[in-house]
């Protein structure tokens, strides 16, 4: 009984403090201008067309989209810029573009093509000053720093190249540093949880959320609707990102938002 009351009080409080909603963000992996992971949308005319998929997600109530480009050819920038233009033309919600962005020039061309935000990862670790330069030139609001980390002997360590390459940088030190350098948001992916569908890294997320005063996007581990509720309440995340649960229609965005609302989590419906 006591626990129940405490819980209600804290969620009530949390709603009174502000009306900003928690965001649900589908992530699309892109290669050569096409979506990479299989998608299970019977209503798609072209299963590999990221623009069509983006429009569907926008109509279903996604709050934002992330496009992660994994193209490794010389044509990559050109195809990515074309994609960004097409998305901006059709989609009426904000979107972030990430993957291989390493210079002020890269960011400028993507923002000018219609991207709302860019996300940088390895390039920021290799050259932290890039964060200051980008925030100074374009404003913190459009600079997302993506951090991939996993636990090594109980310590959260930053990894590069999709978790393959370890560094000697501690997650929480790096998060604090990117905030100080002007990042507007942190997209934290737990490599220990990514792909498991066992839930987000809520303990690390909650610590992160208290540590810095910029929004935290939780990534890695989404499997059920309860996992989203947990990451917003226990993980104190401001937004949650997922890919396959949405692409394979294991979770419908509208159902997810209704479920979150039932759990007193503020969402846009």
């Amino acid at each position: 009984m006591f626990l129940q009351n405490t819980f209600n009080f804290s969620t009530f409080n949390f709603q009174l403090r502000n009306m900003l909603t928690k965001r649900i963000i589908p992530c699309l992996d892109i290669k050569n201008g096409r979506t990479v992971k299989g998608v299970n949308f019977v209503d798609l005319r072209d299963a590999g067309d990221p623009v069509e998929l983006a429009e569907i997600y926008a109509n279903e109530g996604a709050d934002e989209l992330v496009f992660l480009d994994i193209t490794a050819t010389e044509q990559r920038r050109k195809t990515l810029v074309e994609l960004v233009m097409h998305v901006a033309e059709k989609v009426n919600i904000p979107f972030t573009v990430g993957g291989g962005i390493s210079s002020v020039e890269d960011v400028e061309i993507l923002l000018n093509s219609g991207a709302d935000k860019v996300s940088i990862n390895s390039s920021a670790v290799k050259n932290p000053q890039l964060i200051n330069e980008l925030a100074g030139k374009f404003g913190s609001q459009c600079i997302v720093v993506a951090i991939d980390a996993k636990q090594i002997e109980g310590e959260w360590m930053v990894h590069l190249v999709g978790g393959k390459v370890p560094t000697d940088i501690k997650l929480f030190d790096w998060a604090k540093e990117v905030e100080q350098r002007g990042a507007g948001e942190i997209l934290f992916t737990s490599m220990d949880h990514d792909g498991t569908k066992n839930g987000f890294a809520n303990e690390a997320l909650a610590y992160l959320s208290e540590l810095v005063n910029i929004p935290i996007i939780a990534s890695g581990g989404a499997g059920t609707m309860q996992h989203f509720t947990d990451t917003f309440i226990e993980g104190k995340a401001d937004a949650a990102l997922a890919a396959s649960v949405f692409h394979f229609k294991e979770i419908e965005i509208i159902d997810l938002k209704n479920e979150l609302k039932r759990n007193n989590i503020p969402v846009r419906l």
Binding site: R17, M19, T21, R23, D238
Partner: peptide
Amino acid sequence: DNSEKVPQIGWNQ
């Protein structure tokens, strides 16, 4: 002020 996260990013009423 820093009573909320800054920047405010997202959907509000």
